[in-house]
Design a protein around this nucleic acid. Sequence first.
RNA 1: GCCGGUGUAGCUCAACAGGUAGAGCGGUGGAAUCGUAAUCCACGGGUUGUCGGUUCGAGUCCGGCCACCGGCUCCA
Length: 619
Amino acid sequence: MVEIPEGTALVDVAKLLGLKDVFMAEVNGATVELTYPLVENCEVRFLDFSHPLSQKAFWHTASHVMAQAVKRLFPSVKLGIGPAIENGFYYDFDYPEGFSPEDLERIEEEMKKIVEADYPIIREIKTKAEAREILKEEPYKLELLDEIPDENVSFYKQGEFVDLCAGPHLPSAGYVKHFKLLSVAGAYWRGDEKNPMLQRIYGTAFPTKEALEEYLTRIEEAKKRDHRRLGKELDLFSLHEEGPGFPFFHPKGMIILNELIDFWRKEHRKAGYKEIRTPLILSKELWERSGHWDHYKENMYFTKIDDKDYAVKPMNCPGAIIVFKEGIKSYRDLPLRLAELGIVHRHERSGVLHGLMRVRSFTQDDAHIFCTPDQIKSEIESIIKLADHFYKDIFGFDYSVVLSTKPEKAMGPEEIWEKATNALRDTLEELSIPYSIREGEGAFYGPKIDFLLKDCIGRTWQCGTIQLDFLIPEKFDVTYVGPDGERYRPVMLHRVIYGSLERFFGILIEHYAGAFPLWLAPVQVKILTIGEAHIPFAKKVFEILLQRNYRVELDDRSEKLGYKIRGAQLEKVPYMVIIGDKEVNEGRVSIRERKEGDIGSYTIEEFLKMLEERKNSFK
RNA sequence: GCCGGUGUAGCUCAACAGGUAGAGCGGUGGAAUCGUAAUCCACGGGUUGUCGGUUCGAGUCCGGCCACCGGCUCCA
């Protein structure tokens, strides 16, 4: 209990209490800015930078400081929006000339002056009429203003700079001492490509120099585990001008892909799936019938065979339907789970390609589950469990779940969509899985549950998805015979776990920073000899490991041990076997583990056991 | 597709302000036979992304195209 005169600004209260690292506060449970005055008998909780609200206010204020600097240097710019985002902020400016990297430096210099001046940040409430007058030179702000329902709006003012803004903010510009502008990029006004393109400047800021530097080095570290860089360094795959968006997989990359596939097949067999394979190219009529022609043709590649039109498949579903329709299916056959490692091609716009994460040709670990309506929930549940087993147990990913609803260019009636969406939502609720909703992001034939994984710099990528489809079975008149001998319409679930093997591989490279667990490592064991005399024994060990089906290499070059170790270490080989006089004499092997270093000497049997256990642990 | 940036040897990067490309690593050959992250010496290797323009002369300046990078839009 502290007694402080009523009306003292919270920022001064914090000062009196000797609190630093304070940016926002909660007064009687409600979050407020530090400029708020103390009211009678209140309970105040100050929020330090670790609190998301503090960060938000901090970065938001930083964005205003930047906007002020930009306005000073480039008076002709029109302001867009300038929010706090994850790890920083941006501000959009209409400035057709575009900002150069040198401009960013100048803007940073100007920002320093603003921070130095430590302008107090003052919140002012204006009527809409007043606001319109203030913003008469800011067309984008006026557009935003028109959409605010309230009669009064808030402005934030620092020095000569005023911005329409809901806040919250820090008490003054001087808080934002340690900042860095990171990049410029084009961004459509309100995210719509029909609108003009604005110039977006990204930046970040922290309360201390150390925190800023730590963040910047973290970005640098993350870049080192970028899958494109590691893919090249570790000789896993390559990308070429000759086929933009069509990756080439090298022998070492293929080992990993094949391990992923082997594992996938085993798990799916256990989960009651049957595997099929359908053609890459199918007639155009098929795609017209499925709805892809109407809803997806911009993404498809077409070709002609003997004057007839064909399409390269962008999805595997029509193929699976054709297989299902072979012969009459009984209710006893359901749920029928047809899995397919299907290679699909999709035309992606040139600017969106991104290593293995976003390509034009990829392998989906697809499956189409044909079931009765009352089997939907249990099927979805088992897919979710299977996905969770892959992500969490095997690879150790954190992931988030999103429910995507009916898009604008959807086919089929509203009721069907509602029914399907409810089925997905109910299952998520019943399993009490936390999820968010993305309105209008569903597939054109049905709503979906998506599983999102993060790459090394925090971008999220959709991997798994479960899509509930009442429509395509209808289009193809798919039926099964019920217990009563009548024909019924099955429901179809489209689902993937890895999503795309290419993308999943990319994410795995970053997740493991290239140091793959033993079961995936392209080279699992490398045998290093010390001198020429040790080669015969090394070859024996090599042969034993090879016979046990390990991916083993022998480095018998006449190089120093340190040199060979360094090489193997850079290749991120999980185990090195070192063979010198001691090992040859004792008939044992000395083991160096990738992370642990020298772990001592073992008999070959002991080492094999160690490998076996490690392999089976997926670690 | 749009905005901005980048493109020199296999990789990482040099080449002042236009004056006909250079280093380290890797590779190859040789010497050294060595105990837990780089032994030494030698040798190869580039139509400077591509097409065109300016110029006596272009890696360097200008333009078109391609690819890549960061975003936007769009999606596994």
